[in-house]
Amino acid sequence: MERNYTENEINEVATSLLDQSTSKIFLFYGEMGVGKTTLIKEMVKQLGVEDPSSSPSFSIVNEYESNAGLVYHFDFYRINNYTEAYDIGLEDYLYSENYVFIEWPDKINPLLPENATNIYIKANTNGSRNIKIKPMS
């Protein structure tokens, strides 16, 4: 799936991602400031999380309770090596059967499961975003 969207359409994009994915693990690729966290916030909200969500840039992971169980949001921008993610028990989160949203997954490639959904976001010159979604293969 590929499409362009504006911030006004983020609700629709989040709904589509949650409805169409066969995985509860979502990997978000894109440059800094492209809207990864904004999209994740909307997805977390749609899962029934009532607490305000934010980027876990400094804590690495945020955990939320939702109607669908626990939701984990990781931001690996600040790690230096995938072993840091391994050391915090990432594999336990990935195989917990809960929703897992990961920003900067390229930093932990050796740990990524095969059943994840890859989401690539790019900024367009007109301010909209281009999103490509594909299962990991």
Score class of each variant (00 low, 15 high):
98 N>L: 10
71 V>S: 14
84 E>Y: 09
72 Y>N: 15
71 V>N: 05
114 E>D: 09
97 E>N: 14
72 Y>C: 05
87 D>L: 04
100 V>S: 09
110 P>N: 12
111 L>M: 01
113 P>N: 03
104 W>T: 08
108 I>C: 00
58 F>M: 14
103 E>D: 00
72 Y>R: 02
64 Y>V: 04
62 N>C: 13
66 S>L: 14
113 P>M: 10
113 P>V: 07
112 L>T: 03
84 E>W: 05
99 Y>K: 01
86 Y>E: 15
102 I>M: 11
67 N>R: 15
60 I>N: 00
74 F>C: 02
87 D>S: 08
67 N>Q: 13
79 I>H: 08
98 N>P: 08
96 S>N: 04
88 I>N: 13
63 E>Y: 06
105 P>E: 07
86 Y>P: 08
101 F>P: 01
68 A>V: 10
101 F>W: 00
109 N>M: 12
62 N>H: 15
75 D>W: 15
70 L>P: 02
75 D>Y: 15
59 S>A: 15
79 I>L: 03
94 L>S: 04
96 S>H: 12
78 R>N: 09
69 G>V: 05
90 L>Q: 00
65 E>I: 08
88 I>P: 01
87 D>R: 03
63 E>R: 09
99 Y>W: 06
64 Y>G: 03
102 I>Q: 07
67 N>H: 14
84 E>S: 11
104 W>R: 00
85 A>F: 13
58 F>C: 05
104 W>Q: 02
72 Y>I: 10
90 L>C: 06
67 N>L: 08
111 L>I: 08
61 V>Y: 13
75 D>G: 10
101 F>T: 02
74 F>W: 06
91 E>V: 05
98 N>Q: 13
64 Y>T: 10
71 V>A: 12
76 F>K: 04
98 N>V: 01
98 N>Y: 14
75 D>M: 04
93 Y>L: 10
87 D>I: 03
103 E>Y: 03
94 L>D: 09
109 N>H: 06
84 E>F: 07
95 Y>M: 09
103 E>C: 03
62 N>Q: 04
100 V>R: 08
101 F>V: 00
67 N>P: 07
84 E>A: 00
101 F>A: 04
75 D>R: 12
78 R>T: 01
103 E>H: 06
83 T>E: 11
91 E>P: 12
62 N>P: 04
86 Y>K: 10
79 I>D: 05
100 V>G: 03
91 E>A: 12
88 I>E: 12
113 P>R: 15
103 E>T: 02
112 L>D: 05
60 I>Q: 14
74 F>Q: 02
68 A>S: 14
84 E>G: 08
101 F>C: 04
63 E>M: 15
78 R>C: 02
105 P>L: 00
107 K>N: 11
89 G>L: 03
